[in-house]
Design a protein around this nucleic acid. Structure first.
Lengths: 193, 193, 193, 193
DNA sequence: TATGAATGAGATTTCATTCAT
DNA sequence: AATGAATGAAATCTCATTCAT
């Protein structure tokens, strides 16, 4: 049952690390970083506290890895990359819906992300990690608004970013089932697309 | 130190309570609810730990009073009340700037507010408190967009709310000095006013 | 309203001290010495904590005075004094009923007394206070049993003391309403009177 | 220090729990429940405060387990069970001496027991636990007195119970060395056996 | 006389982390 | 690799006592 080769061993370690990250995400998201305890996370991951420490050297380190992992997943889920170019209104709306779907799916991560960035001391430690993700994003939309010849494409893109952040924030806050997403997206289309 | 008359005593108590709230806000905002300790708050307020408990019966109660206090201040700072009606584009923009100024001034409170509402268990306990404040707000803008005859005034108002939330979120996150507020507000004017 | 003469003043102080003792008794009896707080006692006595300290210099001192006061009242309620002599079976039973009535009336005191004497450190401090009260008592019964020519009057008196203590203990424990006192006293009469 | 097999581990846990109970008993008995502190108990048990909480979830829970443990030991030490029947005066006196010996041996427990049952709030929580122990006891003596054809066997048994309680109370209070137990037991034999 | 704000020590409890097995 | 007992520091909270008014 136990993996034999070095490769299998490495794979098993990776799987366990992900399993721990998932447990940590669940617990951090519902109790906050400080409100969560290592015991809770270990219990959620169905391993002992001691073992957890062989994968992540401290609670702080675990949070850090969790943020990296979440942002990476966010980056790879949305197909926005540095070179990507939005070609049509349809593509614009499709991309928007993708982002929202991704946040809905990873609601725990984004709730945690929001909590973390609101704490200046914590935010500083993760700013770099979010930066490239956000900048790629912004650039794609600056390009889109330039193509549309709006007066101040950068400001337009920043404001569009605020729209997304605001919608997501409100949805995470009130619960997605109660939010009239379709109607709001229709307004977004009228204003931006 | 103890004033003589009952009135003065009551006044002194009130002052001290506000002093503690201010300290608590500062500490909660920068460390989060669970990350903040009563010791830190007492030190910030320059009183002993024990004394804090003659004013607020528990850490939880202190947070609750802080949320009430902050939302009340927010409600009284902005002149948005149930009956208010926005009459012109100038008034619309003025109101918007007021909100932003308020949040900038009370940045600590809004950072804390954001952290709290992201934690489902905590959010539930404060939903009622925020509800009337938010509903009054929404109603004023629904009215404004109705007057402007936009297709779906409710959705427009909700989306406009998301714009505000998004801008504020981004500003709280990156720090207000780095945020190109003027240019973004210009875009808002073009889109909504 | 305030008393003028030194005598009235002294009287007022005495009254207040008794009022505090009564409050302390109630609170100590239901929470135990360590489980009771000065705040609770002051609240029960409807005075401030500060004022309490002008009457009793410490919590310990308050307990001590309470024990003295209670034992004195017990001594004065029962008409058992050093010289007293029980003359008949009727007097014997009457005296027994008096003791029981007294403890029922002063149930709080005796509950507290029991708790205190079970703690070796505390008991030592109050042994002297209870001693004379108990010795007078014992002597009266030794005399009675001598008159009755029982084989070992001292042992008989000690055992009779145990009977009283046991009945009272059981009554304090189960609650007097549930205790079949009449029937038990009838047995006592058969055995001892 | 941590044994290997699950069985050994369970055994070690059980041993440690008993070790803690013994320490708690000692400290509770000499300082009372509220007067005793977790620090004192941990020090007595030679473990850290923190560890105590992996065995007992709270001070209250520790007391509860201590009462259960003590009553169980009392029940198993005396050979009085529901079906047992006292057949002779010798057996009667033997049983009595057994009870007294048990209480002498477990003096700390009974001192604590007495303190606890004197506090109405506490007593309520332990009444059920003591009930079956006491009822079995009572029943055995009711049977004995029925066999002896005394007028009111139930009252006789209850009074006999009071005798035992009284003797034990007095012994716990004055210290067993000073109590003329032999002579008093001789009186008991004359009256009841 | 009377108040209750204020303190500081200490209470109960939690938890990140270590380590023997 | 895996466990969870063990620790110690720190958290929340309580309370006897003092003191300015």
């Amino acid at each position: 049952m136990a993996p034999k080769t070095a490769k299998q061993l490495e794979k098993a370690r990776e799987d366990k690390k992900v399993c721990i990250l998932e447990a940590a995400l669940k617990v951090f998201a519902s109790h906050g970083y400080d409100g969560a305890s290592i015991s809770m996370i270990a219990r959620e991951a169905k391993i002992s506290k001691g073992l957890l420490y062989t994968y992540y050297e401290s609670k702080e380190h675990l949070l850090e890895q969790l943020m990296i992992w979440g942002l990476e997943r966010a980056g790879s889920t949305t197909n926005v990359e540095a070179g990507y170019r939005i070609g049509s209104e349809e593509e614009f709306m499709y991309g928007l819906k993708m982002i929202i779907a991704m946040v809905q799916q990873e609601a725990d991560f984004w709730r945690l992300y929001n909590m973390v960035v609101m704490q200046p001391k914590m935010a500083d430690r993760f700013k770099d990690k979010a930066k490239s993700f956000l900048e790629d994003y912004l650039q794609v939309y600056v390009q889109y608004f330039e193509d549309k010849k709006v007066p101040d494409p950068m400001a337009e893109a920043i404001m569009f970013g605020a729209v997304i952040d605001g919608i997501l924030f409100d949805m995470l806050m009130v619960g997605e089932t109660e939010y009239p997403l379709e109607r709001v997206l229709e307004v977004v289309r009228r204003k931006f697309a």
